[in-house]
Design a binder for these strands. Sequence first.
DNA 1: AAGCGCATGTAGCATTTGCTACATATTGGG
DNA 2: CCCAATATGTAGCAAATGCTACATGCGCTT
Lengths: 178, 178
Amino acid sequence: MSRESLLPLLAGHVLAHGLGQASLRPLAQAAGTSDRMLLYHFGTKELLIIDLLSHVAGVYAAGLDAVLAEGERPATRTALVARIIAQNAATAMQPFMLLWWEIVAGAARGLPGFLPAAEAMMGELLVWLEGHMPAGDPDPAGGARYLLTVIEGAMMLTAVGHRQTAREGLLAGGLLEA
Amino acid sequence: MSRESLLPLLAGHVLAHGLGQASLRPLAQAAGTSDRMLLYHFGTKELLIIDLLSHVAGVYAAGLDAVLAEGERPATRTALVARIIAQNAATAMQPFMLLWWEIVAGAARGLPGFLPAAEAMMGELLVWLEGHMPAGDPDPAGGARYLLTVIEGAMMLTAVGHRQTAREGLLAGGLLEA
DNA sequence: AAGCGCATGTAGCATTTGCTACATATTGGG
DNA sequence: CCCAATATGTAGCAAATGCTACATGCGCTT
């Protein structure tokens, strides 16, 4: 079992149970090894988490590329927003969303490895958005950044029980069709 | 030392060091008591955290009311956005911001007490915003929700190292003057 | 003064946590 | 075949964590 073959299993556990419950022994059990072996491969829990976050960021990027392949380019900004909102609300995305907020919290606090991972994931989403802006959009670069800001705000409000508020906000901003 | 007199001291520690480091003995020391006494007053760490988050939400609301008293009503939405962005970027708000993302993460995961606190704080900010929309704004209610969404998105992007992205997004959305 | 309830200190316990020491398998190159 | 490097198991340790048991002070009523 190499580092690389371990990471997906570790990521699975963290996605299922959160970073808060990510202590060595549970992680090891989820990956079918021992804490002893995790330290052997990664050196330190801190280094393991850093590798793990980096790996999660990579998986996220790959997932975006997969979604990028399918589906046609939306005709309007509102269609694009609706598509992403729906995508993020899908139950398959839920575990990732839960993990995401922990990553944001860690990044804000400056925990090692968190900020690079968070920055990378938002960067990926940004380029994805920019590549999916409606054809003929007057300002694809700025528009993508604008939509990213709005969408992430809506995601956050949704996470804290203000889904309705977010929805009304998007409506009032002309970013969602009634 | 009653529950109520303890809470501000506990909140101080949590604001300074985060919820992750909030174990009973450090908390007790910050409040000038013992873990024994914390459990005596709150019954359980979980109950303590719930009380603590509720208290933090109350402090946040009071802080908003204080800011509400001073300052005149902005003339435009962009002025309002600029004011809040500046407010949140102030170093005095930094500890609260760090704590906020932990609360969001906890709320998303359904930890007891987190969601009510987060919901309350966003609710407070929403009414504050609604009360500070420019005079003559065509849609104060929807506009406040729209601005809330956008502002929180910008805050999140800022927290993960995408301050510039957020800024450009706000500019492209016409929510910030160049 | 006696006794009763609230408050608080001391000590500990069982569990978890990250990590280490030491021994042992496994395996590929000479 | 031998040996050295790689890989893995076993056992444990020191610290932290949430919580409990027991004793004791402190104040108030009767």
